[in-house]
Design a protein around this nucleic acid. Sequence first.
DNA 1: TAAGTTAGTGCAACACTATTGCATAGTTTA
DNA 2: TAAACTATGCAATAGTGTTGCACTAACTTA
Lengths: 137, 137
Amino acid sequence: MTNNEIEKKLESKNVKPTAMRNLVYKTLVDSGKALSLADLEQQFEKVERSTIFRALKTFEDNFIVHTVDDGSGSVKYAVCDDDCTCNIHDLHVHFYCTRCGRTRCMKELPIPNIKLPEGYTYDNAQFIINGVCPRCD
Amino acid sequence: MTNNEIEKKLESKNVKPTAMRNLVYKTLVDSGKALSLADLEQQFEKVERSTIFRALKTFEDNFIVHTVDDGSGSVKYAVCDDDCTCNIHDLHVHFYCTRCGRTRCMKELPIPNIKLPEGYTYDNAQFIINGVCPRCD
DNA sequence: TAAGTTAGTGCAACACTATTGCATAGTTTA
DNA sequence: TAAACTATGCAATAGTGTTGCACTAACTTA
Ligand SMILES: [Mn+2]
Ligand SMILES: [Mn+2]
Ligand SMILES: [Zn+2]
Ligand SMILES: [Zn+2]
C-alpha cells in the first residue's frame, strides 16, 4: 500500500494522516494479521508506546481498525474493511493460533446469529477460535 | 451449598479441600456468575491474592472451573458443570453486561459449530456477547 | 505574515492484572 | 516422631494499558 493510498484512506475516515499514523496503519495492513501494541512497538524501536496507543485509539474510534481480545493477554488490532462501521453486521470470527500466536480475521466467517433469552440485548460480540493454523500444522 | 457438599465435590475432582479452596469455591457457586481474582479478593478481605490465584489455577486444571475472558480487563472464573471436561462439547456462550459488568454462563447456548477453512484445527473457543442484561434493562 | 489556537508527540509516571520465588506453617506418610 | 510433601503468605516482578504534562508542529485568522 503506497503512502498516498494510506493518506487517502485515513482522510476518508476523517483522521489526519501524520507520519506516525501512516506508519502504524501501514504496518497493520502489511502484516496481514492482528497486532498488539507491544507487537507494533517492537516493529519500530524508536517510537513511543503512547503515541502508537493513541493512534490506535483514534483508528478504533473512526472505524479504521477493530480490536480483538484473543486471550493472549494483550488486545490486538486489525484493519477494518472499507465499509465497516464495527456494528453487528461487520462482526466476524477471529482465529488465534496457539502455536505461533498469530491472530487472523476470518472475514469469510460472520459471527452466527444467536437467539438470546428474553430480556437480553445484544450490542457486540467476540468469537475467538483457538487452534492451530495451516502454517503451523 | 453445604461445606460437606463442597468437600465431596472437590475430592471427586482430586483436589484436596482446604479451608481456602472451600471458601473460594463456595463464593463462586453462590455468586451465580463469573468472578475475577479481584472480585474474589474483595469478598474476603483478609486472604492473600496469590492463594486465591493458585486455588483458581488448581480448579481450572481439574475442570472445576473454567475461565472467561470477557474483555473487561480481567479474566473471570465460573464453576463448571459436574460432567464438564472443558472440551469442545462443554463450550457455551458467555454474556457480559456492559452496564453492571456481570458475566454469566449461558449454558443453554452451546457455541455453534463453525466450519473452518482447510488446514485449521479447532481446539477451543470463546464466544462472548456484550449487551445489557435483564437486571439492567 | 505574525500571533493565537489546536492537535500530535514524547516522556514519565501510575494503576492494575497476572505471576513467581522463597520462607513458613500445616498435613500426610513411613 | 521424623521426613516429605503441600498449601499458604509475603514480597517482588513483569507486562499491559492509560494518563498528565510539557513541547512542538500544524492550522487559522486577523
Ligand atoms: Mn477482525
Ligand atoms: Mn461458562
Ligand atoms: Zn500458527
Ligand atoms: Zn447488567
